[in-house]
């Protein structure tokens, strides 16, 4: 009986990510120290996972739907700069700065989505374009308006409430954004796996033409997903600016590869149609553990890239195997 339930677990998209997570945790406990599982250690990778995870989930949903969004690499710092410029440099109320940051994410997402559904240009190229365009705009405006590429946002200007909600360390080391990540993941799991809306995303990634013929508003859904990823990216940037009291143009490019790695390790099929939010969640944690775990070992930190590379390849191979198991599955004759 228990072997049966293990089999059914292995057929799920998140199986590979879960096994991968167990493997890397074991690896770092063996080669590193257990302090990496003590609160300060946990905080180090949970913080990375939360910031990355809030972006990785919508990026993964886009991938399930058959699209890519790499413009998040510029939208994250742009969101940070927006809130810092509006509320820090110009001393406007913090809610205006936050609205500005999220509004910017919304606009970038709308542009990405509309360009993708209106033109036949692949979303990789469209968002490559907006990646550079948004980065250029952020740099240009930052220098033009403030004379610098690093804009301060003092805690006084954020105010205690906003600081507590979006940019504070809980217990000295846990970023409050972890709570946002967990809450958002729960909401995503509900809408993607338990509501009809989720079915549409999978259908769209499986076969866009059939999905449209079946009456799914594929264009609108594509735009919504792009808006979701850009707004999430701007949200993460905004939280970072509030947390660190400063916004910088450069921070963000690493998110592009890191989010794609998390999503693919999480069992999402690069060509769309298959994956799960839980998988992306575990993939993100796995990535963060490798990314931070290296500091708890005696290895030089440069080795972490090697581990991530190997982990990615192993995860993809494993996910292929599990997907084939899922395809081949048929109930046994009783």
């Amino acid at each position: 009986m228990s072997s049966l339930s293990i089999r059914s677990l292995l057929r799920r998209p998140e199986a590979g990510a879960l096994l991968g997570l167990v493997a890397v945790l074991a690896f770092f406990v063996v080669f590193g120290s257990t302090s990496f599982l003590k609160p300060a250690g946990i905080a180090s990778w949970l913080n990375v996972a939360a910031n990355l995870g809030i972006v990785a989930i919508p990026v993964g949903l886009l991938m399930i739907a058959g699209e890519l969004d790499i413009s998040i690499g510029a939208t994250i710092p742009a969101g940070a700069l927006a809130v810092a410029i509006i509320s820090g440099h110009y001393s406007q109320p913090i809610w205006m700065g936050m609205a500005g940051a999220l509004g910017l994410g919304l606009v970038v997402g709308l542009i990405n989505g509309i360009l993708v559904v209106r033109t036949a240009v692949p979303s990789l190229i469209v968002t490559l374009g907006t990646l550079f365009a948004v980065q250029g705009l952020a740099l240009g405006f930052s220098v033009l308006l403030t004379g610098t590429t690093s804009v301060a946002l003092s805690p006084a200007k954020s105010g205690p409430l906003v600081k507590a909600l979006f940019g504070e360390f809980i217990g000295g080391s846990f970023q409050v954004i972890i709570c946002w990540w967990l809450a958002l993941a729960a909401v995503y799991i509900f809408y993607v796996h338990f509501s009809p809306f989720g079915n549409w995303i999978f259908a769209m990634g499986g076969d866009k033409v059939s999905a449209r013929n079946a009456g799914i508003p594929t264009r609108r859904l594509t735009i919504v997903l792009f808006v979701l990823s850009s707004t999430s990216a701007a949200f993460v940037g905004m939280c970072q600016a509030i947390l660190f009291n400063v916004a910088q143009v450069s921070a963000g490019m690493t998110f592009i590869f890191n989010s794609i790695i998390s999503v693919v390790v999480g069992g999402v099929l690069l060509t769309g149609g298959f994956g799960s939010v839980a998988g992306i969640f575990f993939g993100t944690v796995t990535f963060a553990v490798v990314n931070q775990g290296i500091y708890f070992t005696t290895f030089d930190r440069n080795w972490s890239s090697l581990i991530i590379g190997i982990m990615l390849l192993l995860a993809v191979l494993m996910n292929n195997t599990f997907r084939n198991m899922a395809l081949a599955y048929r109930p046994r004759k009783k």
Binding site: N199, A203, S210, N213, R323, A326
Partner: peptide, 15 residues
Amino acid sequence: GTFPLMSIGRSFFVG
């Protein structure tokens, strides 16, 4: 014209 990686139930009721 169906969705290879969706379950029979889910693909039957798409939309």
